[in-house]
Deep mutational scan, measured.
Amino acid sequence: QTIHNGDQTYHYDNPEEAIKVAQKLAKIYNLTVTVKGNTVQVH
């Protein structure tokens, strides 16, 4: 599972963990989380 947060990319073995982290980032920075296959984008 990969999270793209602007210019930063994070890799997680656990998809659920990746989505949790993405949602935390989204709340902190007031962003949107988009899940596309194995990629979670925060923008």
Rank of each mutant, 00 (worst) to 15 (best):
G37F: 03
V35E: 01
A26P: 00
T34G: 01
Q41S: 10
D7S: 12
V33L: 03
Y29P: 15
A18V: 01
N30Q: 08
K20L: 11
Y29F: 11
V42M: 02
E17S: 06
T39L: 07
N5K: 11
V42C: 05
H43F: 06
T39Q: 06
Y10K: 03
K36V: 14
T34P: 00
V42G: 01
K36Y: 07
V42N: 00
N38F: 02
D13I: 06
D13G: 06
Q41A: 06
K24Q: 11
G6Y: 13
N14V: 03
T9F: 15
D13R: 10
Q1G: 12
E16Y: 09
K36A: 09
H43D: 03
H11N: 06
T39F: 06
Y10T: 03
Q8V: 14
H11S: 08
T34H: 05
H43C: 12
Q23D: 07
P15M: 10
A18P: 01
T39M: 12
N30Y: 12
A18G: 01
V21E: 10
V42R: 00
A22P: 00
Y10V: 03
G37Y: 02
I19C: 13
T39C: 13
D7Q: 07
K20H: 06
K24F: 13
I28K: 10
T9I: 15
E16H: 07
N14S: 15
A26E: 14
D13Q: 10
L25S: 00
N14K: 04
Y29E: 15
K20M: 09
V21S: 07
H43A: 05
E17K: 07
P15Y: 10
A22Q: 02
T2W: 07
V42T: 02
Q23G: 06
P15W: 10
T32R: 04
I28E: 14
T32D: 09
H43T: 07
A26Q: 11
T34I: 08
T34L: 05
I3E: 11
P15S: 06
I28M: 13
K24E: 10
V35S: 02
N30P: 08
A18R: 01
L25R: 00
D7F: 14
T34W: 03
N14A: 04
T2Y: 09
Y29H: 15
V42F: 03
A26W: 03
H11A: 06
G6C: 15
Q1M: 10
V33Q: 00
N38C: 14
V21Q: 12
D7E: 07
N14P: 03
Q23S: 09
N38D: 03
V33S: 01
T39A: 06
A22L: 04
V33R: 00
P15V: 10
Y12G: 02
Q8D: 11
T9Q: 08
Y10R: 04
K36T: 13
N38V: 05
T34K: 04
D13H: 06
N38P: 02
I19A: 11
T34F: 05
T39H: 04
D7H: 15
H11I: 14
A26S: 12
T2I: 11
V40A: 01
T34N: 03
E16G: 06
T9R: 05
N30V: 03
V33I: 08
V21L: 05
K27G: 05
T39Y: 06
T39I: 12
T2A: 12
A26G: 06
T32Q: 09
V33H: 00
N30K: 06
E16N: 06
Q8R: 14
D13S: 12
P15F: 08
Q41L: 13
K27E: 14
L25P: 01
L31I: 12
Q23K: 13
K36W: 05
I3K: 11
Q1R: 11
I3W: 05
H11P: 02
K20Q: 08
V33Y: 00
K27L: 11
I3V: 12
P15H: 14
I3C: 14
A26I: 09
G6M: 11
A22R: 01
A18M: 03
L25W: 05
L31S: 06
T9S: 07
D13F: 05
L25N: 01
L31G: 08
T2P: 10
V42Y: 02
K24G: 04
Y12Q: 01
P15I: 10
N30F: 10
T2V: 11
E16T: 07
K24V: 12
D7L: 14
I28G: 02
E17G: 02
Q41R: 12
Y10I: 06
E16V: 06
T2C: 14
N14Y: 04
T34R: 03
E17N: 04
T32I: 13
I3T: 11
A22G: 06
E17T: 14
D13T: 09
